[in-house]
Design a protein around this nucleic acid. Sequence first.
DNA 1: TATGAATGAGGATTCATTCAT
DNA 2: GATGAATGAATCCTCATTCAT
Lengths: 226, 226, 226, 226
Amino acid sequence: MTETDNDKFGGHAGNTPRTAPKLDKLLTASADLMARQGFSQTSIRHVARETGFSLGGMYYYFENKEDLLFKIQQRTFSTLLATQEKEMAGGGGARSRLRRFIRNHLAYFTSHFAELKVCTFELESLQGDRFAAIAELRRRYFNCLAVVVGELLEVEAGRAFSDGRVRRRTLFVFGMLNWIFMWYDPDRDSSVEALGDEMVSLVLDGLNGEQSAWPPTDLERPTSGI
Amino acid sequence: MTETDNDKFGGHAGNTPRTAPKLDKLLTASADLMARQGFSQTSIRHVARETGFSLGGMYYYFENKEDLLFKIQQRTFSTLLATQEKEMAGGGGARSRLRRFIRNHLAYFTSHFAELKVCTFELESLQGDRFAAIAELRRRYFNCLAVVVGELLEVEAGRAFSDGRVRRRTLFVFGMLNWIFMWYDPDRDSSVEALGDEMVSLVLDGLNGEQSAWPPTDLERPTSGI
Amino acid sequence: MTETDNDKFGGHAGNTPRTAPKLDKLLTASADLMARQGFSQTSIRHVARETGFSLGGMYYYFENKEDLLFKIQQRTFSTLLATQEKEMAGGGGARSRLRRFIRNHLAYFTSHFAELKVCTFELESLQGDRFAAIAELRRRYFNCLAVVVGELLEVEAGRAFSDGRVRRRTLFVFGMLNWIFMWYDPDRDSSVEALGDEMVSLVLDGLNGEQSAWPPTDLERPTSGI
Amino acid sequence: MTETDNDKFGGHAGNTPRTAPKLDKLLTASADLMARQGFSQTSIRHVARETGFSLGGMYYYFENKEDLLFKIQQRTFSTLLATQEKEMAGGGGARSRLRRFIRNHLAYFTSHFAELKVCTFELESLQGDRFAAIAELRRRYFNCLAVVVGELLEVEAGRAFSDGRVRRRTLFVFGMLNWIFMWYDPDRDSSVEALGDEMVSLVLDGLNGEQSAWPPTDLERPTSGI
DNA sequence: TATGAATGAGGATTCATTCAT
DNA sequence: GATGAATGAATCCTCATTCAT
């Protein structure tokens, strides 16, 4: 998304050397709160308190609450998308590209947990043009993976998008990826790198194709929650 | 969950023949609204308007808003859980039980879309005892599948819960299942039965294990959204 | 305007014996404030403080601020309109009816100063259906006088509405009537009854037709303001 | 009003060749907005956006929002007043001067619609010294007409101001003139010149003294609104 | 059982104004 | 002369909840 697009959605601050770091801090703090409590339960007041801004001062940095959410998603998602599109253009077999896509995604999950969670779960909190802009990013992100899945299913690449089978398999994979926000516990689960390998293994070969590796290498603990 | 449990969380109504159907209508309507807008954005007022109740009258049927959510989850999840625990106790090989679990889950997805969506996405809107009670149901539900996954991974059943590998593979599958709420479109995607088969196939054999089946059987349409 | 119409615009309270007097007090107090400060500068907070209500409690009596204004105008204007339509239907020559219309209007000016001022100056603060409903009342009120003016101009009654001359003469008279809010001072100006006679005289015979009556009967004082 | 007066109310800008046109543009744009939406609903922000100024930059040209309104009224009203005082000093019979006063007023109505509307309806938005200064202009404007009305009523000129009858007749005429802002529609009503003649006719001879002139010369249309 | 009436806290947003630069 | 950045007060409104009836 270009600066022109950015302007179209009313962000009037955050481009100067003085304000850029403040906007940054603001978006990060907001993403944290929204990841924890959800968008609708995160109040501007709360963000202001957290960042030391005055309530009114917040509105110098975004048009309204929805715009704040948009800016978070726009910034985060476009960066991730760029990374992945470049990665996918880098060539390699389908299995390799699947592995790289998942690894990159999970690396981002680790480094930008809150922001990515917000991107994943709060698309529907946007509306109109802002919704459309982020939905388009998401569509492109989806396509990155769909192409790979299509190849793995031996479907000609050009037809991948209109193939329901590819669509659904791709969405299965996204389901696995996105749901991780709901349960991942760094103390309990293996590193995200290993996690990615486990997922790739499942996706490529299924449970039956995996080798049994008992006992597990990670720490045994009584389960709480799921 | 027994009536005693029910009492413990303040439900003092809905047990007489006269009130039971009203409570039912209320929970259903609430679930619909909460599935569409989320819990925090669904107001008691809105539910009252939708059901024809007076605002104050609602509070005869639940203690507070959180209790309303609890009752929905409790009613829905315990029913589904009972079905699946019985089903899993019914025997059969791991592959068969995996297939049956997924099919039942998706059948419930079809017949109780709103309620199941609320159970899936609004656990964290509960707190304290109510959270714990539903989390326990969810844990048992998780176990139903985890046992099967453990067998498929050739892990001894008794150790499944404490095995991180089983835990994660199971959560991958739940990710696929739960994420369906975000994209399933009956006009576009095949029936949920077929959807279940596709998922089972992926889980058991992976993408590479699936046979290519081009052209797809479902209607071709240009993709919009993801 | 019927009760059905009333319902259409969302007033959900004020019909029971317990609430009717409270609604009444509320509308009266609001009209006072709005007459003094204008609609946009009168805050709900202010009205609440004045009437002893809690801020939130106000909204039991009206949907929103615009609805409050609407209720004031609706109540006041429909009463006045009914009076005048009945009066105009009572027969008599055009001169007589002109005199009665102006007298009634000014009597209402005296007895319901604030409400009538709000009706006169705040129509444009309404929008959509509410605007249309009050505009229709106003149109009918206009017609009451326009018919008389048409007769005085010897225009056939049936054609009065489409005659620009009648329209404009009628609006001249309303200009005189409405502007009184801006200057009338009971200590300084004669009684409204006498004021009405003076206006009727001007309208019928013009300044030249009036008899000189110096010295005036009312108190002489140095002018302040206009 | 002299430069000294101007200074007294805080205008510290707009006197240099470079700033004068900017101040001019600013006042004109503000008047437009205030005429359309009213003073209290016109924000400095809005004016800034409309004129291309920065929000902060506005305050170089006026002390505060009230000062902006004052400057508009001061500029507009003093010009109009000068015109009329000169015109009234120009001699001629009372009927002639009445006609000229009304014509000039309506010419100003046409050429400075927004400014005059603001002068007419927003006096009470000023306070203290600023109110007093504009009220004095208005008093002098009132007197211009009151003298003529006094003559027409055969009252000695010197006594006109303290004569309630003159006062009220004059205010009736101003009511007609000022109310025009509420209804004049160039597509529907005759030219303002003709409008002035119609008003003069009413004021001098009353409705009965006007000759019937059916059919009217202006376009017949079904009435909408009043 | 259920309603009508009311409250108080909190939410998003706007706005006049200031001040360092 | 003019701007960018920020503030704090005020505004409209929603909402979970209560309680007398």
